[in-house]
Amino acid sequence: MTSTRPYIRSMKGWWRRHPAYRWYLLREATSVVIGLYALCLLWGMTALLLGPGAHDVWRACVQSLPGRVFQLLALAAFAWHAWTWLRLLPLTLAPLRLGRHRISQTRVHRAALGAWALTSVALLVAAAGGLR
């Protein structure tokens, strides 16, 4: 007998059904923290434009305890977002080939991680040079 009354299940609390969904939501949520950090930097740049008084207020804010905690949180969010984003990178690229062989997704991920680490170190060195 054909069902004339199919049962439709609700999606309520769908993220509770699998840890992978919660990791996915965490990845998406890091974008909010990253967005807030971008706003904080924008505030700093505007303060620089407005003059020494405004810039001192901004510096005092980012150097306060809540300011430091926020920056640590932003660093963690950046690291997690970059790690997960680079893990997904091979999914967004056409299969890469070396001669007749396909380069595996793991290799692409590792290469991207290497490039990320190198760029980060280069930026840190440049920033340290600028501060001196």
């Binding site: 699998h18 992978a20 969904y21 996915y24 998406e28 997904l88 999914l91």
Partner: peptide
């Protein structure tokens, strides 16, 4: 939105 579970 690249949840990625489909491929898993």
């Amino acid at each position: 939105t690249l949840v990625g579970r489909c491929s898993e």
